[in-house]
């Protein structure tokens, strides 16, 4: 759930990169941090194990003048992909405004991709959210490897919830597709924010229920 501070004229939005272990979530943030202009970013903080596996989360703030008269702060998070860290994933998902689901394109990762996607659905349901209302993008990563599934197959597997959602292909370490994904999810989140906060679309009773 987004936050608006009228005193500082600031909007805060939370975007989470989700996906199975070693699919490239952290790499996405690292590449964004390396490549985005210095005035648009804060420090990238990674809480990782000694083997560079995400233990808690990666966090990086991005700033943009996306909405007139307001400074928009995107809080970018990754979750730990390993199955055993589900409590941490739930914690990071709280209040999420947009999700990038990073899929590992390798054939032998298909089961893990599906398990991770189902885990995302479950965790959102537990906090009363749903992918029907939260904007998300699917990023098919690692497209440079040899043992990869065709994009059509990945789409059939992961992008099959009635209405098809936007998806991208990427080679995260080379920066290919990373910014396309970032801009796509930011645009979706901003549009959703504006739609939800436009008076005519607000049902008062609903507004009361979800105010906090």
């Amino acid at each position: 759930m987004s936050f608006v501070n009228y005193a500082t004229r600031e909007i805060q939005l939370k975007i989470v990169y989700y996906g199975c272990g070693l699919c490239g979530k952290t790499t996405n943030l690292q590449v964004i941090h390396e490549m985005v202009s210095p005035d648009a970013k804060g420090d990238l903080t990674s809480l990782a194990t000694s083997q560079d596996r995400t233990l808690f989360f990666d966090f990086m703030p991005l700033v943009a003048e996306a909405i007139k008269g307001f400074q928009t702060r995107f809080q970018m998070y990754t979750v730990p992909g390993q199955v055993m860290y589900n409590m941490t994933r739930r914690l990071v998902l709280r209040g999420v405004d947009g999700i990038v689901f990073v899929a590992d394109s390798q054939w032998d990762k298909m089961a893990e991709n599906v398990e991770s996607f189902n885990n995302l659905l479950e965790n959102l349901q537990l906090q009363g959210d749903s992918l029907d209302t939260i904007p998300y993008v699917i990023q098919h990563n690692k497209r440079d490897l040899t043992n990869i599934a065709p994009v059509n197959y990945l789409e059939f597997l992961l992008n099959n919830r009635g209405k098809r959602r936007p998806s991208t292909t990427s080679i995260a370490p080379q920066g290919k597709g990373v910014f396309e994904t970032l801009n796509m999810i930011c645009r979706l989140v901003l549009n959703n924010f504006i739609r939800e906060n436009t008076p005519k679309s607000v049902n008062k009773e609903e507004k009361d229920l979800v105010l906090m």
């Binding site: 943009a64 996306a66 909405i67 007139k68 307001f70 910014f179 396309e180 970032l182 801009n183």
Partner: peptide, 11 residues
């Protein structure tokens, strides 16, 4: 809330 006109992507 009105979106700023941003040619291309935000970032």
């Amino acid at each position: 809330f009105v979106l700023n006109d941003s040619k291309g992507g935000l970032f």
